[in-house]
Design a protein around this nucleic acid. Structure first.
Lengths: 379, 379
DNA sequence: CCCACGATGTGAATCGTTTCAACCCGACGG
DNA sequence: CCGTCGGGTTGAAACGATTCACATCGTGGG
């Protein structure tokens, strides 16, 4: 049964006002006349100066160091500024002063709420530092990553927060070559001279699997398989480490992505495994949600028939109909910390800066999806 | 029971390499010497020109209009460029040429995957037009909205895609005043001379409630109440319109936000209503997910005891353990369309531009959360 | 009475591009 | 042989701010 039609009907109408009115009204005046700066072409600092009867230097001072300007003059300039609707040109400012107030944030996947939280944290810290964040999404594509890094370089951003898409660190290398300060996010800087903010993913993987083991599970799957992302590999190796000497086994379940659809797909394959695992540890919550969905679709009960552990503890994990046990990462704090380190590295006393590797500890959040249902868990 | 500790343990260590090596290596050379442009301070177009033995004009041409330059010269300049690691300064380019390649996108809530999809659509269209998108999040705060719009204005962005946080349209007014081209997204431009891309939310509300009515429901709640956002109001009035003459009743359920937590909260209140509604239409999917969670927590079955309809059809709606019926909006198409309209408005033949109001039709996607369970639905 | 000083203000130089009029020069038609 | 044409290249003038060395002026100390 087809539940919906992917094509959308389009209604396109054009009400009867005249869209050209404003355009005509704003048409260039004689730029040299007395009224030059009134509306034609954005007003510049020169126009303000003329209108206020002062020099451009004074206007600049009113904007940037008001304490240097006499009270009366200051008021006059301010009046001129908002009479003319003057907005200073950031490119001119930056060209001359050399420094930008923007920091670039390149995330692996904006579709993953985890990174949205990182962005939120970064943004709020940046605001506190008087900086702005430009968020871009590499979608794990190396080409896009390189592309955006080039964009950041052209913008002469203050610095970059990077969640690298590859293990090799080609992005970081490019930034280093270009002399752009950067902080690695969600990845430990090893062999790279840079700051980093990360989470001990090996530990996280251990926590997850240890929890399942104490729940009595002996056949456990890892949804993430040999995915090339470093984070996934670390979680997997932590999971394997936790297994040691338990006699339990860990089956790799390959995925072709890290989103809900991939989780659904992996779930379908898990259901066909013989013998079927009684628990699955998913490399992130999106996979776990897909897995949950697949389990429900097949009539399996969670956690009775299949226990599920996710990773990231995104909001939707707690909000799932069977709330997901998950390994929590302090996403906002990571974003915040990264910005603070970058601010220090590029701030007034950058000379004192030493690169630091900040590693947060993950935390297991137990919810219903791994609730122990009896002394002897479902086989 | 406390399931997790909100404080994170922090491990902060500093491996033993010397972070200053690169800094020293890159220290300024004598900027006037022959080796000036080698590494000290980023190389400029002049350095490239000198290295290639041509004039700056020629270098600029190699970069921007290579067809004008002789083959041999072109090669020589290109070699110099990547020998010096030259990266053109976007601020200088923009200052002189006057036009930016960036368009600003200000969304209501990046935590809502719907807007993430809009951003994705915008980004891909922008890429096709040779533009870049700078995504910012107003989080429905008017102050932040104004702040970011000011940032965009200072950047002299090509244009702005705006999902307004208020009904009054103060943001749009500010943009108009500043002469910044903009497109309203997810909101019909009425009384404002601008392009807009929106969805017929009244229709969407009707679809949702009509669907519930044919399911036999007579006591329906609307989670969204009198929320100030235009979209919510429209969905509500559509819902009321669909009700007309059916004899059914619609109870407003107020919310203090549009996220999962607010949905959970509203859900708790709904459970206490006497008589309890048999169905609820939520103003967006985040609310619906929270509602679903609250229902499960109280032991209610969905859809048997409570049918739920959401709005937006975000991926997590389909991925919920009880997949949500939802009113689908073509988020990516909206983002894409908005960028295309903006590109046309600000492109080479902007003169031919006429503001247009594009209105997409919403589409009901029926899933299990409203499955009709018997001829006479649960009372 | 003179000078140094602090508080204000000035205006030219500068940042790194793009753009454009002008220049050079070999070839080609007349 | 001259004029013109056009492909290649040049060099200087913007663009709009910041910054800094310098002028101006009223004041108070010597």
């Amino acid at each position: 049964m087809k539940l919906f039609n992917p094509d959308f009907n389009l209604v396109d109408f054009n009400p009867g006002f005249n869209p050209d009115f404003d355009r005509d009204f704003n048409r260039d005046f004689n730029r040299d006349g007395v009224t030059a700066s009134d509306m034609g072409g954005a007003a510049g600092i020169k126009d303000v100066a003329r209108a206020a009867g002062v020099s451009v230097g004074t206007v600049s001072n009113v904007i940037n160091r008001p304490e240097l300007v006499g009270e009366e003059t200051r008021a006059r300039v301010r009046a001129a500024i908002d009479l003319l609707g003057y907005v200073r040109s950031e490119s001119a400012r930056q060209l001359r002063s050399g420094s930008s107030r923007i920091i670039g944030l390149l995330v692996l996947d904006l579709g993953n709420p985890f990174f949205v939280s990182v962005a939120r944290g970064a943004e709020s810290a940046a605001r506190a530092e008087g900086l702005r964040v430009m968020v871009c999404n590499s979608a794990q594509r190396l080409a896009d990553e390189a592309d955006y890094l080039a964009l950041f370089a052209e913008q002469r951003v203050r610095g970059v927060l990077l969640t690298p898409a590859d293990t090799a660190g080609s992005g970081a290398a490019a930034l280093r070559r270009g002399g752009v300060p950067f902080v690695l996010v969600d990845r430990l800087a090893q062999g790279v001279e840079a700051c980093s903010v990360s989470v001990d993913d090996v530990r996280g993987g251990s926590l997850a699997v240890a929890h399942l083991l104490t729940g009595g599970h002996r056949r456990i799957a890892f949804a993430g398989g040999h995915h090339p992302l470093q984070q996934v590999a670390d979680r997997r190796s932590g999971a394997r480490a936790a297994l040691a000497g338990s006699g339990a086994e860990l089956a790799d379940l390959e995925v072709d992505g890290l989103d809900v659809a991939a989780g659904r797909d992996a779930g379908a394959r898990l259901l066909g495994m013989q013998p079927r695992p009684t628990a699955v540890f998913c490399a992130n919550d999106l996979l776990a949600l897909g897995m949950l969905q697949a389990a429900f679709a097949a009539g399996l009960r969670v956690p009775e028939d299949l226990a599920i552990v996710g990773y990231d503890d995104i909001e939707f994990a707690a909000a799932a109909a069977v709330p997901l046990t998950s390994v929590r990462q302090p996403a906002e704090a990571m974003g915040r910390t990264a910005v603070e380190m970058l601010a220090q590295e590029t701030g007034p006393n950058a000379a004192a800066h030493r690169h630091r590797q900040v590693v947060f500890e993950p935390e297991l959040v137990v919810r219903r999806s791994t609730l122990r249902v009896s002394a002897t868990p479902a086989q």
